[in-house]
Structure formats: structure tokens, C-alpha cells
């Protein structure tokens, strides 16, 4: 079995060899390591992407907006992902970002996962009918099994999830009430001796 360290190093070097700058290659190395750690096919997708890149000049998107449409060829997942990560602080006010056609979109995913950590919000990434919930770069929840290769994501969208409870207030109260059963009724003498007792706070 290859170690994650080997995976990162080889991904970084191969990205440089494929023509990316060292700075971008470092990002790709970290990303492929992350995909493999989360059980997603990083190495396979990167390999297929590089093979395709030899034949196709994928479109590079620089400034990301809420609707991103290609002019001819699919977006390069690495440049799209990198700029999404770099620009995410100014993008989050848009609530949702859509991309038309990203090549090998699994390579876009780790950039979005890291962006989730940067802004402190969960992101919902949809690649056609596949959905991924990116949890602050700590974990990824997916609705589909780990397929080998997704060559093109025809409709890719990212929603910024607000930091809101996933439950009703009544559900919280019910559980809180149950948790109170671990508390002990305090005696009068205990109350008298508690922090701040016998002092005036108007001093």
C-alpha cells in the first residue's frame, strides 16, 4: 500500500511535470492526499485528467462568479478549484455558485472542501446527480458510492450552508430536559459558598 506521504509527493511532482507551477503542484499534492485519505479516487482521477490534458486544452476560469459558463471546452478542475478556494471569501455572499462542465470534477472537490474550512461553513457540492456535503474539511458525506472516474460534471453547483441547527428548537428542549437529570439539587449552604457569594457586584 502506498503511504499518503508518497501519494502527496508523486502527485505534486507529476503536477509540476504536467506544466503547473510549483505552488499549484503543492496544492494538488495536498488535495490528492486528502481524497485518498477520505477514500475517494484521487490518484486515478489525476491520472485520467493528465492523460486527457495532453489532448485537450481545458478552459481556465480566472474570476469566479455565480454563473460560470464555458466558451468551448470544459473547465480545468484544478484552476477552477484553486480560484474558488482563493476567492471563496468574496464568493460566499453569492450563496450558490454554478459551473457548467468541469472536467474530472472530483479534482475540484478537495479545493471546495478546504474552502469550507476557510470560511467556517459547510458546503453542498453537487456534481450532476451526485451530492457531497463538505464539513469544514474534516469529513465528506456523499450520496453515491466511490465511482472510478467522473470525466465531466455537466452541472456543478456549490451551496454555502449557513451555520444553522439541523434540528427543531422543540427537539433540542426535549433532549436538554433529559440531560438535566444528571444535575443535583444544590443545598442552601452550598449556594452560600459558591463563587461570588457574599459580595456585592456594585463595587
Amino acid at each position: 500500500m502506498k503511504s499518503l506521504s508518497e501519494i502527496e509527493t508523486v502527485s505534486k511532482r507529476s503536477s509540476r511535470a504536467a506544466g503547473f507551477s510549483w505552488g499549484i503542484a503543492e496544492e494538488v499534492g495536498k488535495n490528492i492526499r486528502m481524497l485518498e485519505l477520505f477514500g475517494l479516487n484521487g490518484i486515478k482521477n489525476l491520472n485520467y485528467y493528465f492523460r486527457a490534458r495532453n489532448k485537450k486544452n481545458f478552459e481556465k476560469i480566472n474570476l469566479i462568479s455565480n454563473e460560470n459558463k464555458i466558451s468551448k471546452i470544459e473547465f480545468c478542475p484544478i484552476i477552477a478549484g484553486l480560484n474558488f478556494l482563493d476567492q471563496v471569501r468574496s464568493l460566499e455572499i453569492l450563496n450558490e455558485i454554478k459551473f457548467e462542465k468541469i472536467a474530472y470534477p472530483l479534482l475540484f472537490l478537495p479545493f471546495a472542501s478546504r474552502a469550507s474550512e476557510v470560511i467556517g461553513k459547510k458546503l453542498e457540492l453537487k456534481i450532476d446527480n451526485r451530492a457531497f456535503l463538505l464539513n469544514y474539511n474534516n469529513s465528506i458525506y456523499a450520496n453515491s458510492s466511490n465511482e472510478d472516474i467522473i470525466e465531466i460534471g455537466n452541472n456543478v453547483s456549490i451551496k454555502f450552508k449557513e451555520n444553522e441547527d439541523s434540528f427543531e428548537e422543540s427537539e433540542w428542549k426535549e433532549l436538554y430536559k433529559l440531560s438535566e437529570n444528571t444535575f443535583v439539587e444544590e443545598s442552601e449552604s452550598s449556594k452560600v459558598g459558591g463563587a461570588g457569594a457574599e459580595l456585592t457586584d456594585n463595587d
Partner: peptide, 16 residues
């Protein structure tokens, strides 16, 4: 910096 990096990725490693 996000705008600067768009066209200057060759220096990304030293910006970091």
C-alpha cells in the same frame, strides 16, 4: 492576493 495570484501562479509557492 486572490486577484494577484490569478495570473501569477508561478510565484504561488513564495507567496505562501
Amino acid at each position: 492576493i486572490d486577484r494577484f495570484l490569478v495570473n501569477n501562479s508561478d510565484l504561488r509557492h513564495v507567496v505562501r
